[in-house]
Design a protein around this nucleic acid. Structure first.
Lengths: 169, 169
DNA sequence: TTGCTGAGTATGGAAAAGTAAACTCAGATG
DNA sequence: CATCTGAGTTTACTTTTCCATACTCAGCAA
């Protein structure tokens, strides 16, 4: 424990409990993708859907919520709209993933593999993820920048540049 | 496209759109950890909190929801209860992570790193994750079983053993 | 025996999600 | 031109979830 931390604790302030927990990347990510349906919409985009009617058909979610979630995802830059036109129909918007949306794949893979392990049907998962080309099973894992595989218990969380204590109440 | 898939499509059935999307490991994981506060409670457990009052203090979430979420996490085997006793106080329950809970770390790391990239303060993240010992920055990445780093666009999703079509409506 | 503390439980109002149905409107059809 | 069509939006209503706060309860202590 360094001198600053010790001084704080002497004053009854615990950096772990008195930090500003709203200033957290997990909380902020959940502000964007933490509502019901949002992650499932992204899953369908990853699986190849792009049209309003496709999402509605496969998810069975309320149309007003689907419209609201798509609007939010586009505003956030996770999806983008393009137009498509079926012969004999007018042109309509479709939704495609952006690089910002692609960067959510590791998080979604993490949820997927936990479900595969603990909540899948007895016979196994409904979908399998393979490495295109090599064909091997794919999963999310934790690595450090030196390329070592990291066990969760070997992750050390330390205050970063934007660490803040909660303002006085 | 194989013969079966082709035959299905001739019958107007699209495996992608007409599959049973509730039979999905992502959806099932979200049934457990998709409610508000649940992931944030786990975050605090990873950071070292274990007591009801600690969660309440740092999260600022309603006590009834906190109690409900903790109960759910224990029922699901993601947390377990132990007892602790402060000198001069009666013994009380505390909450500790189980191996099943540790297996959610990759998913949470995925959310964390997306937030670090797109939603952090200008000066950087509030918390940093380091590999204990080597000290290098840690993140969630996608790998195949042969150890190759996999780009999201190189993930191929194919029907697995429990793939099901939606039952006729 | 009165008060204190940590860990909940209970409750009433606010917000979000779910449901169903009506509305919009560009292009196809007649 | 008038009408139809259907993806997408809006609206109105019900149900569920969330939130804030007050209350309970068991053991310790003065």
């Amino acid at each position: 424990m360094d001198a600053t931390t010790e001084a704080l604790q002497d004053a009854g302030v615990d950096p772990r409990l008195d930090r500003d927990a709203s200033n957290c990347s997990i909380a902020r990510t959940l502000e964007v993708v933490g509502e019901k349906w949002t992650i499932l919409i992204l899953r369908e985009v990853y699986y190849g859907s792009s049209r309003f009617s496709e999402f509605e058909r496969v998810l069975g979610c309320p149309r007003n919520l689907l419209a609201a979630r798509l609007r939010m995802l586009v505003e956030e830059g996770i999806l983008a709209t393009e137009t498509y036109k079926e012969p004999g129909s007018r042109s309509r918007p479709k939704y495609v993933i952006t690089p910002k949306g692609v960067d959510l794949v590791p998080a979604v893979m993490g949820l997927l593999q936990w479900g595969d392990r603990y909540r899948a049907d007895p016979e196994g998962p409904a979908m399998l993820s393979r490495h295109r080309g090599c064909g091997a099973h794919v999963d999310a894992q934790i690595r450090c920048d030196r390329g070592h595989a990291v066990q969760p218990e070997d992750i050390e969380s330390v205050p970063g540049p934007a660490f803040r204590l909660r303002s006085a109440e």
